[in-house]
Design a binder for these strands. Structure first.
Lengths: 149, 149
DNA sequence: CTCCAATTGAGAAGGTTTTTCAATTACCCG
DNA sequence: CGGGTAATTGAAAAACCTTCTCAATTGGAG
């Protein structure tokens, strides 16, 4: 069990929630993945740890963890809603078009840009959501061919 | 019928598609709306013009218009996939948290920011998707109260 | 006006998400 | 270490959303 997994589990307990097999499984799958996972993918992973875990529980777990901001939904251009563990603070995801490997980045320097938009539109801007799509270093190297595993 | 509606209809014809009641209805609903509309909202609007129009047709129409880049999907934080007429060029939407009124903005000055992220991550960035959320001028004025119509 | 391919509505099928409820589990307490 | 209790769960069903199929209709070219 890696550090991140432990942190999330502690956080769960700190909020008064029980640490169950299903929650452990979802968190482990996400901390162990380099890309956002869908509800179905999480279910498949969880069942490898305990085949009794049901799909419904995954939905509930994902809802809970999202609510606690321990994981975050990641919209992809096509299929909506994968999930990834949330680093503390405000981050965004950059997802590889070929292999779907995702990295988080922060230091979100949108401040000036947002100010300008606010001035132009008259809106008071309260939140933003940014997803980037690209091609990761590995897939650039293996150019033109099939996605990297 | 406003200019924008006419433009879109002409565009349809130019691509060899028929201008049908259903397509007219969807386009009119979107050109007449200040916020992105979901498939269901489009269906409801279309039925006000002709109750015989079915939901399936709305799906097909939305797919066609999206394919032609005459309308664009707009992901919102909660419910995925509203649609809005596409202004030419690359734009993003800023949606009011209270009344859901949306404005488009362009002149997307993310260039420098994206370069920096590319340098940090090694990814070649091929696309981005930005949604802003805020409170529009009208709702700011009517502060604290119910959403404006 | 007529004809033909494109388009449509209805119904059914496929998929995803939510609800309900009794059985099970995690963990607090002794 | 067990035992009690409330939170959590799995299964089944319901609700919902999206796609498919096919016969009937419609737009627009001629």
């Amino acid at each position: 069990m890696d550090d991140h997994e432990q942190t999330v589990l502690d956080d769960l307990r700190a909020h008064g929630y029980k640490v169950t097999q299903a929650r452990r499984a979802v968190i482990r799958a996400l901390t162990g993945s380099v890309r956002p996972l869908s509800v179905n993918e999480l279910h498949a992973q969880a069942q490898r740890m305990n085949p009794a875990i049901g799909l419904v529980t995954i939905y509930r777990t994902v809802e809970l963890l999202t609510h606690l901001d321990l994981i975050r939904p990641v919209h992809l251009m096509d299929n909506c809603h994968g999930y990834a563990v949330a680093s503390p603070g405000h981050t965004h995801h950059l997802v590889c078009k070929k292999c779907h490997r995702a990295v988080e980045f922060d230091g979100c320097d949108l401040g000036l840009f947002l100010e300008q938009v606010a001035r132009e539109t008259g809106y008071r801007i309260t939140g933003h959501w940014l997803e980037l799509e690209g091609i990761c270093a590995r897939c650039q190297a293996a150019d033109g061919s099939a996605p990297q595993p």
